[in-house]
């Protein structure tokens, strides 16, 4: 759906998160990708990985929604990193 609303997701942020290996970056991407966004008309996030870097692109209708969304994704990334560190 490329409606007018989606066009207005002007508040963006891009994170590049370096992992130790390409495999780890790919794991993080696969773990985060499946979950649906609660309000896709207000907030969108795309995950991808290139070599050992995970790329996360956020788009949102305002900076408040952006901040909440980003912080929740970072919380999940922390769990992933801790799991990789402690359990592999």
């Amino acid at each position: 759906m490329t409606s007018k609303r989606e066009m207005s997701l002007d508040y963006t942020l891009e994170l590049q998160i370096p992992f130790e290996t390409e495999g780890q970056a790919s794991i993080a991407t696969k773990v985060l990708s499946p979950d649906p966004i609660l309000k896709p008309q207000d907030f969108q996030v795309d995950y991808s990985s290139e070599k050992n870097i995970m790329l996360v692109r956020f788009r949102s209708i305002d900076d408040r929604v952006l901040r909440v969304g980003v912080s929740s994704v970072i919380d999940s990334i922390k769990t992933i990193v801790e799991t990789i560190d402690e359990l592999s």
Partner: peptide, 15 residues
């Protein structure tokens, strides 16, 4: 629920 499934998925791929 979500915070736990993140760990579960990571373990599944790691192991």
């Amino acid at each position: 629920l979500h915070s736990v499934v993140i760990a579960a998925r990571t373990c599944s791929l790691l192991w």
